[in-house]
Amino acid sequence: MTALRADSGDATVAVASRESEGGELQAPTSSLKMFLSVFGENRLAVVGLVILALILGFCFIGPLVYHTNQVQTDFNSSTLPPSAAHPLGTDDAGYDVLGRLMVAGQVSLEVGLGGALLSSLFGVIWGAISGYVGGWLDALMMRVVDAFYAIPPLLLMLLMATIFSRTTLVFIVVVAIVSWLPTARLVRGESLAIRVREYVEAARSMGVRHVRIVQRHILRNVIGTIVVQTTLQVANAILLLAALSYLGLGPPPPSTSWGAMLNNGLNYIYDGYWWLIYPAGIAIVLTVIAFSFVGDALRDAFDARLQRH
């Protein structure tokens, strides 16, 4: 474990130092251009962005065009196969599956995005303090991270889902609690390396306040890492919520998520009701792949920008 972490730490140090030595010479516009061109050249990234745009439109604009009742049950029209009235059929409670995919997607995306953002915010603060202050506080704060790492994420989520009420906000917090750890470690490693550099020492000797040093010198150096990490966390968060929902501890009815739809579909696996099994699963896979594509491309783009310097 230590060796792995040390390796990646060294790599990021090397990258960070390259930027800090020549960073001021580069005009910011060309840096942005460079970033955009590397990102744009990556075909997978463009595919990812297009898929994301389609999914976001489908989930948030779709219900405005395609009206379905996703609150009241209608047992007279349960488990109907796809037809003109219901392009993807209906589920056992009579909900239209296409419309259900949209509202379920809203919950999945809200928890994914919200959870990833919150976890990054918390991870950055934790990691920056730990790395910048150093010493015994650093050791203590990193052991806290290790302790959270040791608990299987799904067990902690199940435990919290039974203790607290299951609202979207709670899911965002729960997802953040199990996913802030890699961000905290990355930011800690980089701020540990940056805080001993001459320009930080110079700033400190000029009497610049600690908060400002962290903002101006440390966070600015790690912003690329944070953006990449947040994007990948969204994918992870969506998978975590899906697993939790599949186990029946996701958003309570009539609210739903893609994982909850699949939980329901499993009951009908022997009945040949494929519309309860494929669409929601494909939605999860597509969303997770799209976020991963974008995240990987962002990493390449940030790396290229740094290497250019």
């Binding site: 994918a235 697993a243 994982g259 699949l262 099994i277 896979v285 991963s292």
Partner: peptide, 22 residues
Amino acid sequence: AFVGYAMPTFWAGMLLILGFAI
């Protein structure tokens, strides 16, 4: 491997049941 990573475990299990048991 990428699809394997993106696929929820339970869905992979459901698809395997569909394929090899049904």
